[in-house]
Structures are given as C-alpha cells and as structure tokens.
Design a protein around this nucleic acid. Structure first.
Length: 738
RNA sequence: AGCGGGGUGGGGUAGCCAGGAUAUCCCGUCGGGCUCAUAACCCGGAGAUCGGUCGUUCAAAUCGACCCCCCGCUACCA
C-alpha cells in the first residue's frame, strides 16, 4: 500500500467556482485520487479557499462588508459545490485559519534563519485618496517607451517594457483615478536567485512532465530568476511574525502555496494523530502530484519547490499535470469577466455524474477545449445514456425480471474467456492511463468496455434463450453481470454516483471503495439478490433559443444625436463625441479622415448602447456608433426619416439590456443591403427580407442583420415606430457594418 | 500589428513530441439486423491525396523551411 499526496490549486475566494475550475484543476485530481483509493493506496488530497489578497478587499469594499465576510461566503458556497460534485478531499480548508498562519510563520522564520529572505527598501505607489499602498496592477500610466496610456505599474502590455516603481508617467490609481504618490517602504524578498542551480537540477529528470509544463518551466529558468518581494503593505492577510511589521502582510503568492503543507498538518490534527502528515511529506518514496491550470505553472514548478528547498526536508512535487483552459464561446472562463457557468447553479439542473462525465471527456489536457451546450447534450445522450446507461439497464432489468438473483454460470470456460479477456484488457488500459494522468484516454477505455457489453449482449440474445434454454440464458447473463460489475468499478473514479448505484443494484452492501480494484476480476456470487433496476442517467434536453433572429435581441440599438465633437488628445484617427440617446453618453470613434467635425454635429446616428464600455487610448467610450465600411470608405448609419433621439432600433423585438462584450458583438453580423423587390434584398447576393420594414421600397439602401453567414433571411433594421435605417451616402451592397 | 493556440471525411475530434503498411472516435447520412433496453442496441456502406508549396527520408498527418487561413489575448478595431 503506497502513500500518495494529491494537491489541488486553491480556488480564489471571491466568486463561485465555474466549469473551468472543475475541468482544469478539480476533477482530474479527484479522478486520480479515487483511482488510487480503489487500488488501496493511502491518499492525502488537500486544497482550500485562497482567501487573502487585494481582490477580496476590493470586492468587500464594493459590497460594504468586511473581507472576512466575502472570504467566508465564497468559501462556504464553493465547499458545498465541491461536495455536491462528489469531489472527495481529505480536507478542503481555507487560508484564513490560525493553523495556516502558524505554518506560514514557521516557514517564513525558517527561510529567514537559513538566509533566504532579506530586507530591502523600495519605492511603492501609495494612493492618498484610498489610503493604501497600491499593488502594481492597480496603477496605470503612460509608458515612457511607447506612449501607451494604459501601461500597468510594473509592465507595459503594449511594448513589453518593464518598469520599477516611479518609471511610468502620469500614474493614476485604477480604483479611484487620483494620482498616487511614491513612498519608501521596506519589504522582505525571497532570494530566488539562490535556487537557480538546484532548480535546474530538480527539473532535469522530469522528462515525464507534460510538454507544456516542461517548456514553460525551462524558459523561466533560462531567463534567470529574480528575487521577489514576499510582503505587501496591507492589513488583510497573514501578518509578518516580526516586531515593527504590524502594518504589513505576507504576499499571497508566497503564502497560498504553503497551504498545501498547512492543510496537510490541519488534516492530521483533525484525524486525531497530529503527526500523521509527516510520513506523507518526508518519506521520499511518496509522490506529490499538483493539479492546476496553465496560468499557475511557474508557482508550482519553481517558486514552491524553491520554498520547499529553502525549508528543507520536505518532498518536492513529483508531477505537475497542468491543464490548458476550458473555453466557452471561444473565450476563457473567467470569473472577473463574468464569462462562464458557475457550478452551484449548474448543479441545480444536472446530476453531478452528468457534469463529471462531460467534463472528463472534454478535459483540456493538451490544448484548450471548448464547452458547448450542444456538445454537452450530444455526449450525454449518445454516450453516457445510450451506451453505458442503457447497457446497465438492459442487463439488470432483464436479469432481475427473469431470475431475480445472479444466475449460476453453467457453461464452458472457453465461453467465459471471451468476456474475461475483454474485462482484463479494459482494466489494463484504464490502469495504465490513470496512473499516468491520461484521463480522457482512460474514460475512453471504460466506454469501450460498455460497447463491448452491448455487442456481447446482442450476440448471445438472452431474450431468445430465456424461452428455450434457461441454463444457457443464466450463464450468459452471469457473464454480462461480470461486465456490469467491472464497469461499476472502472467508472467509479469518473462517475461515482452511478457506480455506487449500480453496485447496490447488483446486490452488494459494502461500497465499491471497500471492495476495491481487485473486485474487477473477482467473480460475482451466484444467488446474490438483485435489486429492481431503474435507469441510471436521464437524457438531457437543452432549451434552444431557436428563433431565427434571436441573436439580434442581444443588441440594444438606439438613435442618437451628436452634440459635440472633439479630437482625441492622444490618437490620430479617433474623435471623442457627446451623444444624446435619451441620456448623454460619450463615444470614441475612428471617424477622423472620413467626416469633418462640423458635418457630424447634429447628425442622427445609430448607437449600440449595451456594449461593455472600453477605454480607447485612455478615453472611455460608453457605446459604439454603427457605420458601414467598404474600400476605405466609412459611412454612418442613420434613420431614413427624422426620429427622436433615444428611440430604440429594435425591429419590434425585445432587445436585452445585458452588457455585451466586444467579442460577442463581433460575432453578430450586420450588412448594407439594397432592396431588390418587395421581399428580397441584395447584400452581395439576394436573400429574403424580413421584419416590419421588409418592404422598404425597391432600390432603397438599408441596414440588415444576418443571423449567420449562409442565412437566406435578413432582418431589415428599423426603429420601434417602423422607420428603416439607411446609410449616410452611397456604398456597395454587402458592405459590413461595425 | 505583437504574443499564444489551431487548420485531419458534412460538423466535432484522436493521432503529431519519440516518422512506418487499410488515419481514430462521436454525431450526421445510406442500407441491413434485433426487439431485452431510456426512439435505446448491433452490423455494414459511402465520404479525407490529414490548409498549401518545397524539402529531409526507403517511408511524412507526424520532422524542417516558406506561405495561406481561423481563433484567443493584447492594441490608435468602436
């Protein structure tokens, strides 16, 4: 019996976990841990909520509650979601505990004693209005190198220049907008440079790491390691255990990774044996696996190993099987940007096994993977329900109805071999793939066995045998039950709920874990009473917004009147204008060179009002005006008749006020069309015209919405009162609008 | 434009790092079988010169060079 340590990246405690977390860092370790438990290994699997850091305090201020309340709220929500997904940690704790503080202090002081920490004075931005020191990501300013207005405090994303504090020009606090001042402050630094050689040594024999992890780590090491500050001027976090440092805390990146150790220690205390963690962390034979997303790689392959080396005597990570990202509609799941599907609400609609199965088949093991509801529906209904669920159900219900218990096997060993060979093969494949963290392949091998089962069941046709050869029928059912039993064990790491259910239907009383991996090949006892079968999974039906132009409702378009125009202070092509859309908003648009300021004032235009505001070279644009573009010409869209500012351009539909991100907006296609007849429009090709203004009059130029590139119906844009939208000049049919 | 990830039968994918003989699986499609089972299961067919060109090699989806296209992040795209 071996010991295994499974460490899981700590989800940040300022929002609910989403599908990206589960597919990327939570589900793989759980599958891995369940597999090891089945094999009888002793697994220590720990993680928790990362509760400290500036984002928590900022969110707390916004909601006008204490940081503790935010940190606790999401810790509770996420702990429950993890439990409901049947992800079984030895301990899922949090960083705001006395135990964690003590362990962090111990590590800090030990590193200090060993000479790996040192004090250094630095300059740091301090915001007088917010009364706090500002982390680099909360400072923006002009890059002295390329002039980019939105350079961050430590780096310009535009040209890549890095700065030390004070080097960016016209700095401002991104929280309140005021100008921060520079103050002297003293911090502890981790002497990362001292570990360069030892880390290179450590990485040298890790040829079994995933390619992306190896590449990333080597690149970091080759670039040379810089010492990093490990304290911050803040109050929310783990205090520095030294006199005179009361107004500083230990930086989250240093403190949170220590959670793996502190959680192990806390687990031991709770288990009643305070020292139970020690063999897991000091016996060099015990392998430590760290599961995380690709953005977390250097912290676990460089910084955490360096801390462990500096502390001494503890095991280093054995493998770090980092995953890529799960994307949704082409974008990365991200809680800060609101892209994503959170687990607590998903669990209200779907069984945990269904979520686990889908995510296990779409795991971003080697490349980004895309989540889609259509794919979800297809995979669940055609694979999980139709292949595995149906096989379970047809075997169990047929046997239960005709025999009531496990029938005796009375046939020849040769007949048995066909089935046991298939089981043995599947077992070998699953074993090999799971032990090397290839989860998608392992699941495929499980499903192959289910398919074998269906094929076998068909080939022996028990429904025919039952009528004239009851002994033979019993024998083949016995073998089918062997396959069902094996499937229950083999699928348990992936879909534990249904596996346990099948186990009970088979008449076992103890759980699968009590029996373990060995029971795959242990024959099922004849005479064992079967429970009455019921389907193990239900089909899912995803509601589809199948109205042809439903995507148009994502857009909130309004008529606006341009009231004033000025040049953008920092851009050649951009104009800044104030526009009345019933209220007054500011737009930034690249119209310079196409329109003169004087022509624009008073003009009626069409504005997207629910677009996420964005800063364009330092000036915020609160919407976007629509214009047609072709061959270097840019023409504004405008109503065909005079319309009041603020009137909705909705074609009689109900537009959503939900904020639209720019990428989402870009997926929507609008074009210039010329009316070809009463019910058709030329957009470079002829399509049917639809909507209240479908018959705008032959020859008229109109703006149309096209639901997809190949669509043969186009929606003619018009206002609530039926005034069509046209173009402010002559432009090619089919010209794109943006 | 910079950085990153891709282009494999109608759609979605595996294989690519460690080159090898009929290129995987799911859906769809066509035909057949079965009727125990959640319109589920099983068998068979059609359909891809693996983005393009050139090269390395006895042998390239797989290695190298150049080009084209798509997506994401970033950006004087709004």
């Amino acid at each position: 019996m071996a010991k295994v340590v499974v460490c899981v990246a700590w989800p940040y405690s300022n929002s609910p976990i989403h599908l990206g977390h589960v597919a990327g860092s939570l589900l793989p370790p759980d599958i891995f841990a369940k597999y090891h438990r089945l094999k009888g290994d002793e697994v220590l699997m720990v993680s928790g909520s990362d509760q400290h850091g500036t984002p928590v305090t900022v969110k707390a201020e916004k909601e006008n509650v204490s940081p503790e309340e935010i940190a606790e709220k999401y810790h509770n929500i996420n702990s429950k979601a993890i439990k409901d997904l049947h992800i079984d940690f030895s301990l899922f704790t949090k960083t705001h505990t006395q135990n964690h503080f003590e362990v962090v202090h111990d590590v800090f002081l030990r590193l200090l004693d060993n000479g790996y920490l040192y004090k250094k004075e630095t300059l740091q931005y301090h915001c007088p209005r917010c009364q706090r020191f500002l982390p680099d990501r909360y400072v923006e300013g002009r890059c002295k190198n390329c002039g980019n207005e939105r350079a961050r405090g430590d780096q310009c994303d535009s040209c890549g220049t890095t700065f030390s504090a004070g080097e960016i020009e016209a700095a401002r606090c991104t929280l309140c907008g005021s100008s921060p001042e520079l103050k002297d402050t003293e911090h502890y630094f981790l002497r990362l440079s001292a570990f360069q050689e030892r880390l290179l040594d450590y990485v040298r024999d890790k040829s079994y790491w995933k390619a992306n992890v190896q590449t990333f780590t080597r690149n970091w090491l080759e670039a040379g390691l810089a010492d990093r500050a490990i304290t911050r001027d803040m109050t929310w976090g783990v205090n520095v255990p030294l006199p005179g440092w009361e107004d500083k805390v230990i930086y989250v990146w240093f403190e949170a990774v220590i959670g793996y150790l502190s959680a192990s220690i806390e687990w031991a205390k709770r288990s009643g044996d305070r020292d139970a963690w020690i063999p897991f962390w000091t016996d060099p034979e015990v392998r430590h696996y760290y599961f995380l997303g690709k953005d977390n790689i250097p912290f676990h392959t460089i910084i955490w190993p360096a801390i462990l080396m500096g502390y001494g005597g503890l095991n280093l990570p054995y493998d770090v099987p980092a995953n890529e990202f799960l994307t949704f509609k082409g974008e990365k799941f991200s809680k800060s940007r609101g892209v994503g599907i959170d687990i607590p609400s998903l669990l209200q609609d779907y069984d945990s096994d269904i979520i686990r199965y889908y995510l296990a088949t779409e795991m971003p093991e080697n490349r980004d993977a895309e989540f889609s509801w259509e794919e979800f529906e297809v995979k669940i209904n055609n694979e999980l329900v139709a292949t595995l669920g149906n096989y379970y159900h047809r075997v169990l219900s047929f046997t239960h109805r005709n025999f009531g218990n496990v029938p005796e096997f009375k046939s020849t060993e040769e007949n048995r071999r066909e089935v046991t060979d298939a089981i043995r093969t599947a077992m070998g494949q699953v074993d090999e793939h799971l032990s090397t963290c290839q989860f998608k392949k392992a699941l495929k091998s499980v499903m192959d066995l289910a398919q074998f089962g269906n094929r076998y069941f068909d080939s022996v046709a028990p429904w025919a045998l039952v009528k004239n050869d009851r002994d033979k029928c019993g024998s083949v059912l016995n073998l089918n039950l062997e396959v069902v039993k094996s499937l229950a064990v083999l699928s348990y790491p992936f879909i534990p709920r249904s596996a346990e259910d099948v186990w009970r239907l088979l008449g076992y009383e103890a759980s699968i874990l009590d029996k373990g991996w060995g029971w795959i090949m242990t024959p099922i006892s004849a005479g064992q009473i079967l429970q009455e079968s019921r389907p193990l999974f239900s089909r899912v039906v995803i509601g589809k917004g199948d109205q042809m132009f439903s995507d148009f409702e994502k857009l909130s378009l309004k008529i606006g009147t341009i009231q004033s125009v000025s040049d953008h202070p920092n851009a050649d092509k951009l104009l800044v204008m104030d526009v009345d859309i019933g209220r007054r908003i500011r737009l930034v648009a690249g119209l310079k060179g196409h329109y003169l300021s004087d022509e624009l004032i008073g003009k009626k235009i069409v504005v997207v009002t629910n677009l996420q505001p964005a800063k364009l070279r330092g000036v915020e644009s609160q919407g976007m005006l629509l214009a047609a573009e072709h061959g270097g010409k840019v023409m504004l869209l405008t109503p065909a008749a005079d319309v009041l500012a603020g009137e909705s351009v909705d074609c009689g539909m109900k537009p959503s006020e939900k904020v639209l991100t720019f990428p989402e907006f870009q997926k929507l296609s609008m074009l210039v069309g010329r009316m070809a007849s009463q019910d058709s429009v030329d957009i470079g090709r002829i399509v049917r015209s639809k909507g209240p203004c479908a018959a705008a009059g032959p020859g008229k130029t109109v703006a149309v919405f096209l639901p997809s590139a190949e669509a043969c119906d186009a929606l003619v844009l018009c206002t609530k009162n039926g005034v069509p939208i046209t173009v402010d000049g002559d432009i090619e049919s089919g010209a794109p609008i943006r």
